[in-house]
Structures are given as C-alpha cells and as structure tokens.
Design a protein around this nucleic acid. Structure first.
Length: 665
DNA sequence: ATGTATATTCAT
DNA sequence: ATGAATATACAT
C-alpha cells in the first residue's frame, strides 16, 4: 500500500482515533455494514460518488484498501451529499419509522416529465420530503429527468430547461440569476444528480425486492488503474503515442457489447457509463478502436462502433437517438487532421458504406461520446464515455449545412442497460422511430428490409442477437491470443485446483494424507489406502495365527485398533476388501481433474479461435450464448459445470461407506 | 508494399 | 495555428 496504512474509526465519543479530532457530521461516514462512524478525511480511499457513499463499507468490513483517488465533489454535490446522509443518519426516526418511510418510498411516484404520458397521480416520496424538495425541477415539480444544473445551483429537467430557454428566458426560473450563454446553449446533464436519483430508486427497489439490484452502469470509481501505454507513449505525453495494450480479448471486428468473458483483466466487460481519458484509452478497452477516425468498420462487412466527437456540425444528439453524419467530404491534404471545411460530397463508400451495412443487417453498434461534442447535452464533461448499443434504423443523404452532400444515419439506442443520463432502472425498450423532418429533402434513402440481427426478445425482455453475428474476419494478434489462452487456462486451473482440493479434503487417507490409493473403509467408517492400512498392522496381523488353525485361534487373536479410533477392527483386517465404489468415485474425479489439465495444455490456437467465436454469438447475453453454443464437447471442458457433479458423487460416497459399515457389523 | 484518409493528442 | 506520430481501412 502506497498510502498511510493506519486506518481507524471514530471512538465512542465521536473523535477520530487517528487524528484525534471530532469531525463534523458532514465529515463523518457511517459504514453500511457495521454502522461504525469514520472520519472521511482520514480514510485512505473515501468514496468518490454519492452512490458509493450510500453503500460505503469501512476498511474493516470491506477489507479492500484501494489507493485513494481525489474525487472532489462540486458545490451542488456537497449539498446532496449532506442531504442524503441526513436520511441515513436521521436519529429522530426509529427503525420502525424508517421502515415505514421506506415503504412510502416504494409506493413513490415514477418520475416522468410532462412530455410523456403520466402514470397516474403518484405521491411524493419520503426521499423528496427529506430533501425538502430541493432537487425538484421548478417547472414540473418532479425529480428532474435528465437533470441539468445551473451555475446558481438549481436543477431542472433538460426538457423543461430547454423549453424555458426556447421562450427566450435567460434567468434562472428559481432565483432569477442570469443564465450564462454557454449554459443556455449547451446545457450538460449533471451526472452526479443522475446518480443520486438512480440511487434513490435503488434504495426503493432494494426494500421492495430484497437483494440489491446490480446495475451495470459504472461511475469512474469502478475504473481500473491507469491504462497502460507504451514506453514510447509516455515520453512526450500522449502525442505520438503508441496505442498501448488492448485489455479486452475481442477481435477488432467484434460487434456488440464487450462482456466479462472478454475482459480477463477485470472479468467485468465494458459497462455502460465507463469513461476514459481519451481516445487512446478508450481504444485499449475495445469500445472504439480507431485512434482518430469516428467510425470503426469495414465497407464490405459493417461498422462496429462510432464516436460522437462533435466533428460534424450536422450531427444532432437526442440521447436515446441521434443523427450522425458520415465521414469524408473534406480536403485533408498535407498533414492536416482537422478541416471543418467541406469541399466535396460524401458518398456511401468506405466507412460510410460500413455504417450502411450495419443499418441493413441491424447489427448492434457501440457508441462512445466524447467531451469534444460541445453541442450535445448528453456528452460527458471530460474524456470519452461508453454509452451502449445503438442500431442504425435508416440512412440517407442530404445537403449539409456547408452545402455539400453528407451521409446521414439515424441511430436508436437498444441496450439492456440504462443510458448514463437517465435515472431509469431499466434499459431501452423498443421505441417508435422519431420523426425526421430532413427526410423530406433526403436522397438515397435506405431502410432495413430484413429482420435485424440484434433485436428485442419479447420473451426474455431484453435485446440480444436474433441471428448469429457475422464471423470475425480478422485474425487476433498473437499477444492477444496469448492473453486469451492464459485467461482461459487460469480459469480452468482454478477449477482443477478446486477438484484437487476436494479430492484431498474428502478422500485423503488418514495415514498418508494423500488421496487414497485402493481405499479401504473400516467398520468404524475410517478410510485409508490399503497399503497404509496394512502397513499400520505389519507384524501384528492375526492372519498368520489363524492360518495355523485349531481351537485356540480365537483366544490367540490380537485386539487390533483402528488407526483412527479405539474400535477393534481385527475381523475387518482378516478379510480386507477395497472399497470399490469409493475407488470408482476417486478415479473419476482424478480423471476429470487430469482431463482439465490436458485440455489446458492441448488447446491449440485454432481451438481457442473457434471457441472465441462461439462465445461471440452470445456476447451481451450469456443465456443466449448457452442456447446458441455449438454442442462441442470441448466447450464442456472450457466451461465446466459448477461442482454439482461433485456434490452428487461425494454424497453417494457417504451412502456407500454407510453400506460398508453396515456390512461390516 | 506503399500511400492516403481519418471526428486525436501534444509540443512547438 | 501547425506539425508529427500513430493505427486502421482501403486504394493503388
């Protein structure tokens, strides 16, 4: 640990046992598990977001002393922070009252703004009561939908705010402060507030549905350590950077979400809401590979991802859907990398054609938004953010703002996780296409005729591959391949280790402590290797005496004790039988463990590729993966079932030994 | 193979 | 503002 490792909670008097100061209430954090108060300033890794604050566990309970990263909260957030903690630590409420308040939360309203259909009259939740309505949008008096926050610290729904601005108003509807032109023209969604509202709903569903629902939505505290860059890249900063290692194991032409199976580094996949510093770092996690270009794709195959970076002024972002402009049409001769001036028409070729193919096939297209997109309220404040899967529903050409033709694409979100800007507790549902006025003047309109590859499954209630994704045409580079092999090997070895451990634990000889060879089970139900057992009685066996025959036999017989207990097992010794049932179990377990080992060693590169492609089919939906996966026996080795088999066998073993014991007696 | 385009990034 | 390094796709 790089930081000071001493971490102590507050004592009975509320004083921090580390700095001896009694912190203010706002500086105290209570562990969600053990309810111990801690001084925030003395924590090695204080929670960085409000969401993580609510569920914060103290170092003792989490056992997870992550290095600290500065996570300064702005003024608005601090208010919220205090308000939320007020709910948490409201001592005027008994547990019963808290439960009742929670119940009210459960029955609280579902937030919908005026533009959508109201879902009946819903009463204010206790969450709002506690916050004193301070978060509410002053226009619709509801928790803000797509919240935006003015510099004067007042919150509104994006749509309410835009309506207000649209009426020519330039003062805050709540305090009459002047709204800066930038805020008026480019309101940005307050992601902290999104988290707060989402969290309120979480705590709601938490009470209603028992276990906390896990949302696959990340804030930056969940990000891994700084992405790797090559030595070369580190010298002059990120200019002239080599791209650095790609952490995920998807081929470059992989369509759809990047799932945990393809994330050996974190076993998590690329989650909606994940942010990166820049395009290079984004590339390292596979969300959008091109370092410069906005479209990733191949003209004869399809487009896998796009970046909304504000490079084309015709772009129009509505969050769940947007109008995207194709690339090209600009003279970039020389070493220019930016030239906003369009000097010729765009055509459906190269990347623009790749997008059209994805439209035609209904492929899932990953979307990242860059902070450079200044005109969109949905762009992140900084860096590049993964916003999930979209489909291209239509494309066409029109005359762009600069007078030359541009390719146009209607992107509509279709992800199973909620977008980073909504506080919804569910992903996208199929929605009607928006009306596009510019389509009236469009040429070369193209609409998908066939059924889309990625579509909503009404039974599963989620988006998934309805047709197999196109097979990867791109070889995976050797380094990646090695990574993948290593990752798989590690997983399998973890499994074989547990098999071994179980073998040792349940089937070890009480004498040599090894897995039994030719197991014998005594009437007193102790198990040994036959050889160990016999060796324990070498020179003492009664067998020889017996072979002499005669009446004195019984009286001559020695009393021989079981090596593990005082039971006389001399009779058993005289007719020593290997427990063949038990031996069978042990043999099969040993074999299984060895097969797994062999599988690790024998797996050729082709086989890795093959299984990787199979895994691709279900990416974004593990259940689908199961359904569509080839019934290749190797798959079983690669994804061994959980240890249900083992439990069964070990149970059977117990029955068997009882049988043996009964027989013996 | 070689050259060029591309919605980047950083230094000069 | 402008140039250089960089990776991918695609044309030559």
């Amino acid at each position: 640990m790089a930081h000071d490792s001493v971490q102590l909670p507050c004592d009975g008097d509320g004083a921090c046992m580390r700095c001896k100061v009694t912190p203010l209430a706002e500086e105290t954090l209570t562990c969600s598990t053990c309810a111990t108060p801690w001084h925030v300033a003395c924590l090695a890794s204080p929670p960085e977001t409000l969401a993580s604050t609510l569920q914060w566990q103290c170092p003792d309970c989490s056992g997870d002393p992550l290095p600290s990263a500065a996570g300064a909260l702005d003024g608005t957030s601090s208010e919220l922070f205090a308000a939320i903690r007020a709910i948490e630590s409201d001592e005027s409420l008994t547990e019963k009252e808290k439960a009742r308040k929670r119940q009210e939360l459960v029955s609280g309203r579902v937030e919908e703004d005026g533009d959508k259909e109201k879902k009946g009259k819903e009463k204010e939740s206790s969450f709002l009561d506690v916050l004193d309505g301070s978060l509410n949008c002053s226009f619709c008096m509801q928790l803000p939908d797509r919240p935006v926050t003015t510099p004067c610290g007042h919150n509104f729904c994006l749509k309410c705010f835009q309506k207000w601005i649209g009426q020519g108003k330039r003062t805050c509807a709540k305090c009459r402060s002047t709204i800066p032109p930038k805020m008026a023209s480019q309101p940005r969604i307050n992601s902290t507030l999104v988290s707060v509202i989402r969290m309120a709903k979480l705590s709601k569903s938490n009470v209603a549905a028992g276990p906390m629902k896990v949302y696959h939505f990340v804030q930056n505290q969940d990000r891994p350590d700084k992405a790797f860059t090559t030595e070369r890249a580190q010298k002059p900063g990120k200019a002239n950077a080599a791209s650095g290692k790609i952490f995920v194991t998807v081929p470059p032409d992989h369509f759809g979400p990047i799932t945990a199976e393809n994330d050996p580094a974190r076993n998590q996949g690329v989650l909606v809401g994940e942010c990166w510093e820049d395009r290079l770092e984004c590339r390292q996690w596979g969300a959008h590979l091109p370092h410069v270009a906005g479209i990733a794709g191949q003209s004869n195959y399809g487009a896998q991802s796009v970046a909304l970076s504000g490079g084309y002024e015709d772009d129009e972002d509505h969050g769940e859907w947007f109008l995207y402009t194709g690339s090209g049409g600009r003279d970039l001769s020389g070493n220019k990398r930016t030239n906003k001036e369009q000097s010729f028409d765009q055509k459906f070729e190269k990347m623009n054609e790749a997008l059209r193919v994805s439209c035609k096939m209904g492929y899932p297209v990953r979307v990242v938004r860059s902070h450079k997109e200044k005109r969109s309220s949905y762009a992140p404040e900084k860096g590049v953010r993964y916003d999930g899967i979209y489909r291209i529903e239509k494309c066409w050409r029109k005359v762009g703002i600069q007078g030359f033709k541009v390719c146009r694409y209607l992107f509509v979100r279709c992800d199973n996780e909620p977008a980073p800007w909504t506080s919804d507790d569910h992903g996208d549902l199929p929605r009607p296409l928006p009306a596009i006025p510019e389509l009236k003047k469009a040429t070369d309109v193209f609409e998908r005729k066939e059924s889309p590859s990625w579509d909503f499954d009404e039974e599963d209630n989620r988006w998934r591959w309805k047709k197999p994704p196109p097979p990867s045409k791109r070889p995976v580079n050797a380094a990646d391949l090695e990574d993948r092999k290593r990752a798989r090997k590690a997983i399998r070895q973890a499994h074989t280790t547990t098999v071994r451990e179980r073998l040792l634990k349940e089937f070890s000889c009480l004498i040599c402590r090894q897995v039994m060879n030719l197991p014998v089970t005594t009437p007193c139900a102790h198990n040994f290797c036959k050889s160990c057992f016999e060796a324990a009685f070498s020179g003492k066996t009664a067998i020889r005496e017996r072979s002499k025959g005669g009446r004195t036999l019984r009286s001559q017989k020695n009393v021989l004790h079981c090596p593990s207990c005082p039971t006389d097992i001399s009779d058993f010794l005289q007719n020593l039988q290997v427990n063949r049932e038990l031996m069978g179990v042990i043999e099969s377990l040993k074999q299984k463990s060895e097969e797994n080992q062999d599988a690790v060693e024998e797996l050729s590169e082709e086989q890795v590729d093959e299984s990787e492609e199979n895994a691709d089919i279900g990416s974004g939906d593990s259940e689908t993966a199961q359904k569509t996966k080839n019934p290749d026996p190797k798959d079983d080795l690669q994804n061994p079932p959980p240890d249900s088999d083992q439990k069964r066998t070990s149970k059977r073993m117990k029955v068997d030994t009882t049988q043996v014991v009964a027989d013996g007696e």
